[in-house]
Design a protein around this nucleic acid. Structure first.
Length: 492
RNA sequence: GGUCUCUUGGCCGAGUGGCUAGGCACCGGUCUGCAAAACCGCCUACAGCAGUUCGAAUCUGCUAGAGACCUCCA
C-alpha cells in the first residue's frame, strides 16, 4: 500500500475532500454506463477515461476496487415517440431486429472502442434487463416506506412527500418550488400527483415489446431505478463513489438519491463525481443535438469535420490533457497538438535505451515523481501530471544532447517513474513501436536501404541520398540522421 | 424564465491572493551537405469596469459574452 492522501471533488458539497473509504482498503465505485442503442461517440469516451484513470490510480495506491459500470438496455423513454416507447424497442422495430440483438451489436462495438482506448473493463458490467427482479423489489421497498403511489398500473415516486422530510434537489442545488413550473409535459403526466414526480414502474402500452410482469402491470422499470438497484446489489447499501457525466446530475442522480433514501432510510453514496462535457464549436457534443462524432469515425477519419484520422491513444491523451471537470473543446488543431505531444513523450521514453549512465547525476527525479503524485492526489489533475512527464522528456533529450548527465540509479528511477505514470496510471500505450518492431525481416530491408543511402552520402551523391530519403518519407517513414548513421521509424 | 458554471497569450489548456504550468504553432540560434529530429533562446496572457488588499488572473460587485441543467443524452 502506497500511502497517498487522495482528495476528490465531491459534487455533494461542491468542494474537494479527502477520500476516506467506507471499508478500509476497499473501494466501491459505480459509474453510469452507456445506453447501447447507438455507436459510442467522443462524449462517451470522457467518463470512461476519467473513471478508468480513477480506477487505475486507486488500485495503484493499494486499494482493492470493485468497479461497477452498468449497461442500460431498457427503461429509457423515447421523447419523440408518441406513446413513449422504449428507445431500444423503437430502434429494434426500425431495423427489424430483436431488441437484444441491437443491444448486443452496439455493446460489442462499445467494448471494442473501449479496448482501443485502453479503458480497463470494470469489475462488473451488469445489464439493466438482467436485474428486473431487483428493480421490482426496490420499487416495493419504496412503496412500503410510503414514498410511492400507484396510478393506472404505473408507480410514481412521491417527490412532494419525500421533500417534507428530506431535501429533493440537494445534489443539483435545486428546490422543489423551482421545479413546479419548469417540468415538461410527458406521457402519463395526468397520472401523476405532481409534474416533478418520476416513474418507478411504467405500464407498457400494447405495442411495447420489452415488458416484464410485475405486481402492478406488465411493463418496464423507471428511468432511474437500475443504477440504484444494481449499485445496491453489487456494492451494498453504502458505497464510496458514484460517477457519471454532469448532464446526469439532474434528474438522474438526484432521483437515485431520493430512491435510496426512500428505500433504505439513508443515502448510499459518499462521493459523487461528475465529468464535464466535450464541446464542439463551443456546444455540447450530444446525441440529441446530432453534432457528435463517433469513436470509430475518429479512428478512421471518416467524418467531414475531421481533417485526418486520430488514433485511440491520441483521443485518450487529448482527454487527459484537460482536467475532467473542465469542458474540453474538440478541434482538429487541438487533436493534432495532442498527437504531436504524445509522440514526443513516447519517443523520449524510447530514447531512454540510448542513454549511457554517468558517474554523477545533474538531474533529480524524486521531486518530479512526488509532484506527479501530488497532482493525482489533487482531484486527479492529469494535465499537471502530463506537464511533468514533458519535463521528464526534456531531461532525457538534454542528457542525449550532452547538456545533462545521469547516474544508473537515477536513470532507473526516471524510467520507472515515466512508465508508472504514462502507462500504468494514465493508461497510455505506445502504438508506433509495436507496428514497426514486429516484423524483423521488413525492418532489415529498411536498414539495408538506409545503408545504401549512407554509401551515397559518403560519396557525396546528394541526389541519390535525398531521393531515398524523400521516397521513404512519402511511404510514411520518418528518417532521422544522426552522427552514426540514420534512424527510422514508421510515422503514423 | 429558474438554477448553476465558465471567459487565461496565435491555438489548446493548468493554476485560486505574491515565486507568474505544460503542449502545439511562430521566430532566432546550434547541429546537418541540405532537411528532419533534438538542444538553446524568444513570445510573459488572464473578457471589461469598479472595489477590497502592501499586493489579484486568483476575493467582492456590476457589465458584456458563452455554456450546462431544468426533456432521453457521457
Amino acid at each position: 500500500m502506497i500511502s497517498q492522501k487522495l482528495n476528490i471533488y465531491n459534487t455533494l458539497d461542491r468542494k474537494k475532500e479527502e477520500f476516506v473509504p467506507h471499508h478500509p482498503g476497499h473501494v466501491g465505485m459505480y459509474v453510469c454506463g452507456p445506453t447501447v442503442y447507438g455507436d459510442g461517440h467522443l462524449g462517451h469516451a470522457r467518463p470512461a477515461i476519467t473513471f478508468d484513470l480513477l480506477f487505475r490510480y486507486l488500485q495503484h495506491i493499494g486499494y482493492k476496487v470493485r468497479y461497477v459500470r452498468n449497461i442500460t438496455d431498457v427503461g429509457h423513454l423515447e421523447n419523440d415517440a408518441d406513446q413513449g416507447e422504449d428507445k431500444i424497442a423503437k430502434k429494434a422495430r426500425l431495423e427489424e431486429l430483436e431488441p437484444m440483438e441491437v443491444v448486443q451489436y452496439y455493446l460489442n462495438r462499445y467494448h471494442k472502442a473501449m479496448e482501443a482506448l485502453n479503458v480497463l473493463p470494470p469489475s462488473i458490467e451488469p445489464h439493466a434487463s438482467g436485474h428486473i427482479i431487483e428493480q421490482i423489489e426496490y420499487v416495493k421497498k419504496i412503496e412500503e416506506a410510503g414514498f410511492a403511489y400507484e396510478s393506472n398500473g404505473s408507480v410514481y415516486f412521491d417527490v412532494e412527500k419525500y421533500n417534507k422530510s428530506h431535501h429533493y434537489g440537494k445534489l443539483s442545488g435545486r428546490n422543489i418550488d423551482e421545479l413546479l413550473n419548469t417540468t415538461r409535459e410527458l406521457d402519463g403526466q395526468q397520472e401523476k400527483k405532481n409534474s416533478f414526480d418520476f416513474a418507478l414502474w411504467k405500464k407498457a402500452s400494447p405495442e411495447h415489446i420489452m415488458r416484464w410482469p410485475s405486481p402492478w402491470s406488465d411493463g418496464f422499470p423507471g428511468w432511474h431505478l437500475e443504477c440504484s438497484a444494481m449499485g445496491q446489489k453489487y456494492l451494498g447499501e453504502e458505497f464510496d463513489i458514484h460517477g457519471g457525466g454532469m448532464d446526469l446530475l439532474f434528474p438522474h442522480h438526484e432521483c437515485e438519491i431520493a430512491q435510496s433514501v426512500a428505500a433504505q432510510g439513508h443515502e448510499c453514496v459518499h462521493y459523487w463525481m461528475h465529468n464535464n462535457m466535450i464541446t464542439i464549436n463551443g456546444q455540447k457534443m450530444g446525441k440529441s443535438l446530432g453534432n457528435f462524432i463517433t469513436l470509430d469515425q475518429f479512428f478512421t477519419g471518416d467524418h467531414p469535420a475531421l481533417a485526418q484520422a486520430y488514433s485511440p491513444m491520441t483521443i485518450r491523451f487529448f482527454i487527459l490533457m484537460a482536467h475532467y471537470r473542465s469542458t474540453v473543446d474538440f478541434s482538429n488543431e487541438a487533436l493534432q497538438a495532442a498527437e504531436k505531444g504524445l509522440n514526443r513523450l513516447m519517443e523520449a521514453y524510447a530514447n531512454l535505451e540510448k542513454i549511457t549512465p554517468a558517474d554523477k547525476s545533474t538531474v533529480e527525479i524524486a521531486p518530479l515523481r512526488q509532484k506527479m503524485y501530488d497532482a493525482m492526489n489533487d482531484d486527479l489533475n492529469s494535465p499537471i501530471v502530463i506537464s511533468h512527464l514533458f519535463e521528464c522528456a526534456s531531461i532525457i533529450n538534454r542528457i542525449l544532447a550532452g547538456n545533462e548527465s545521469i547516474d544508473a540509479a537515477t536513470l532507473a528511477e526516471l524510467k520507472e517513474t515515466m512508465s508508472l505514470f504514462m502507462f500504468d496510471i494514465l493508461g497510455l500505450k505506445n502504438e508506433t513501436t509495436a507496428a514497426s518492431d514486429n516484423n524483423e525481416a521488413y525492418g532489415k530491408v529498411v536498414d539495408l536501404i538506409l545503408e545504401m543511402r549512407q554509401q551515397a552520402k559518403a560519396n557525396k551523391d546528394w541526389a541519390t541520398s535525398d531521393l531515398i530519403r524523400n521516397k521513404l518519407t512519402e511511404l510514411g517513414f520518418e528518417i532521422k540522421d544522426g552522427k552514426e548513421g540514420a534512424e527510422w521509424k514508421l510515422a503514423k
